[in-house]
Simulated assay, not measured.
Amino acid sequence: MMQAVATTSLAILRGTTTDAYGDEQDTDTPVRTGVPASLVEQSRRVTTRDDPTPRIVRYAVARVPAGTDITDQDRVRDERTGAVYIVDAVSGMDNPALQVDRRLDLRRTT
């Protein structure tokens, strides 16, 4: 059961293959589909000391049920919109009394 309110469902994509040139490519093989998730895309204005020109950086955060089999570098596809994201980080707080949602830091690829 999730604490966050699910806004979509995700397919977790995992695996690689080798193309005709010997380069590794991601496959779109789903290891699990229909994972309830709260997915939020946001943007932030960013500047650096080296480049004071403001840039808009978009990022996404998802929350999935505790115990979901997902790791860094997996990809997820939003089953509602078809957008694909790479999982940059997976985190979750430890709580002895309650299983808490897992947080996914995502970067959109399509």
Rank of each mutant, 00 (worst) to 15 (best):
R63T: 09
R75S: 01
D69H: 11
V76G: 01
R55E: 15
D69R: 13
A66E: 03
R44L: 06
P52D: 09
P65M: 14
S43Y: 04
G67T: 10
D50A: 14
D78C: 05
V46W: 05
R63E: 12
R45C: 11
R75A: 00
D72H: 09
L39D: 07
V64E: 05
I70T: 01
P54Q: 11
D78G: 02
T71Q: 12
S43Q: 15
R80A: 15
V40G: 00
R63L: 15
D69I: 05
E41V: 11
T81Y: 00
V46P: 02
L39P: 05
T53K: 12
A60Y: 04
R49M: 04
A66W: 14
R75E: 00
V46H: 09
L39A: 07
D51C: 12
V40I: 11
A66S: 03
T47A: 03
T33K: 05
V57G: 15
V31I: 15
P52R: 11
D69G: 06
R80Q: 12
V64W: 02
A62V: 01
V40C: 06
R63N: 13
G67Y: 09
L39I: 13
T81Q: 08
P52K: 03
A37H: 00
A66Q: 00
T33P: 00
V40N: 08
D72G: 07
V76T: 00
R44N: 13
D78W: 00
T47F: 01
R77T: 02
R55H: 10
T33Q: 07
R58Y: 15
E41M: 10
T81C: 10
Y59W: 14
T68Y: 00
T47I: 14
D72V: 07
R75M: 08
Q42F: 11
D74F: 09
A60G: 13
D78M: 07
P54C: 08
P52H: 11
T48P: 10
R75G: 03
E79C: 04
V46Q: 09
P65K: 05
G34D: 01
V40F: 05
Q73S: 11
P36K: 04
T71H: 06
R49G: 09
R63G: 02
L39M: 11
R44T: 15
V35C: 06
Q73A: 06
V40D: 08
V64S: 05
V76C: 02
I70A: 03
D50Q: 12
V61I: 14
A62D: 08
V46T: 04
R75V: 04
T71M: 11
S38W: 02
R58F: 13
V31H: 09
R77P: 04
V61E: 15
R63Q: 15
V76M: 06
V76E: 01
G67D: 02
P52V: 12
R32E: 10
P65F: 04
D72K: 09
R49D: 14
E41F: 05
V35E: 01
D50F: 15
V61G: 05
R75D: 00
R63K: 14
R58E: 13
P36D: 00
V31M: 06
